[in-house]
């Protein structure tokens, strides 16, 4: 129980952060024409910011199922790396069905907190997931329902929250590593090029993000291979 409570407590700041970001997701989803319950259901079953944002963009098109799959796999492949990394640090009991169950909750922030533990027990991880999950679900609901009530100017401003969070994840790392900074700049340059080049910009945004990200990451892996173990980064 001690481990569970400690995990619970560690999840509070993540939950608060998720509350505000998923609020934006709720607003966006409803502004795209989704019902409130659809937005909430997406958040409850998927639990990821970037993937959901790309996902609702793709959902606006009819039957782009392959594109949806490719974009989700590309955007979320980082979770595989996190899962592999965390699988090295779990306690001996944290195996089998427990991993299948709690693997669902592998988000960037939950991973970041869990991986800083010496050893991750099932109870700690279980506690850690509670508030982030509640925050993500509740925030989506509030955004989807209250979004319409808020003045347009405030709603417009809140649409930037999710991007602010992305920047808060990338910028500190890019500041530490000039190589990462260069790779991120390549991705951004490609993304601008795709956005403004005629013909190419008729590609859906999900697909062009995939292409830009993969090309930039391959460029990084070839030009600046990571020598040391990067599991904790």
């Amino acid at each position: 129980m001690k481990d569970y409570n400690r995990g619970l407590k560690s999840g509070v700041p993540i939950g608060l952060g998720y509350l505000s970001v998923s609020f934006t997701f709720g607003i966006l989803a409803v502004s795209y024409g989704f019902e409130w319950w659809q937005a909430v259901l997406i958040s409850m079953t998927t639990l990821t910011s970037a993937g959901q944002l790309a996902g609702i963009n793709i959902m606006l098109n009819p039957a782009s199922y392959i594109e949806m799959l490719i974009s989700q796999l590309t955007i979320n492949v980082r979770y595989s790396f996190m899962s592999i990394s965390l699988s090295q640090k779990t306690s001996p009991q944290f195996k089998g069905i427990r991993r299948w169950l709690f693997g669902f909750f592998m988000t960037d922030e939950i991973f970041a907190v869990a991986v800083s533990e010496k050893e991750v027990s099932t109870k700690f991880f279980a506690g850690l997931t509670v508030f982030p999950y509640i925050g993500w679900t509740l925030g989506t609901l509030l955004g989807a329902v209250l979004g319409n009530i808020l003045p347009e100017m405030i709603m417009n401003a809140l649409c930037l929250a999710i991007y602010g969070m992305f920047i808060a994840i990338v910028a500190p790392k890019a500041k530490e590593s000039i190589k990462l900074f260069a790779v991120v700049m390549v991705s951004i340059a490609l993304s601008f090029a795709f956005y403004y080049t005629p013909v190419i910009n008729s590609l859906s945004s999900g697909l062009s993000i995939c292409i830009c990200a993969i090309v930039a990451a391959v460029f990084g892996a070839l030009t600046f291979p990571k020598k040391e173990d990067t599991a904790n980064e």
């Binding site: 970037a50 944002l53 790309a54 590309t74 955007i75 492949v77 980082r78 790396f81 960037d108 991007y163 992305f166 994840i169 990338v170 790392k173 890019a174 990462l180 790779v183 991120v184 390549v186 991705s187 951004i188 490609l190 993304s191 062009s208 993000i209 830009c212 990200a213 993969i214 930039a216 990451a217 990084g220 892996a221 990571k226 990067t230 980064e233």
Partner: peptide, 11 residues
């Protein structure tokens, strides 16, 4: 290692 950051940047 690079892919999470390039995805977020391109998004």
């Amino acid at each position: 290692y690079y892919i999470p950051y390039t995805v977020l940047a391109a998004m």
